[in-house]
Design a protein around this nucleic acid. Structure first.
Length: 90
DNA sequence: CATTTGACGCCAA
DNA sequence: TTTGGCGCCAAAT
């Protein structure tokens, strides 16, 4: 506790926190996440960070492109589409 | 420390 | 509308 070191969350950490907060059936764009993380132009960096993420606790499949395209997924594009489609039918 | 990578976004043709 | 190319940025190598 006392030893609070300016723990600046890395951009990656911020992205994970933001994506974790995406409710089921909802979706966010890479640009939106980047903006929330403090870098409105780091849309690419967001995708890069999520690409290295293998934590199922992070619903990174809810992050899509700004133009509405599903984008990519480290587990298979089709899988991401299925998940989104599944959540679509709440 | 320099260079490459890549799940993006936007514009001109 | 679709395609090609450029910009932009953190993380990995």
């Amino acid at each position: 506790m006392g030893l609070e070191k300016t723990q600046m969350k890395s951009f990656k950490e911020k992205v994970f926190e933001i994506v974790k907060k995406i409710s089921r059936g909802k979706t966010m764009t890479y640009k939106q996440v980047a903006k929330m993380a403090g870098l409105p132009r780091a849309c690419r960096a967001v995708g890069n960070v999520l690409n290295k993420n293998y934590d199922s606790k992070i619903p990174c499949h809810r992050v899509i492109r700004t133009d509405g395209s599903v984008g990519g997924y480290n587990r298979g594009r089709q899988k991401k589409i299925n998940l989104l489609r599944n959540e679509k039918t709440i």
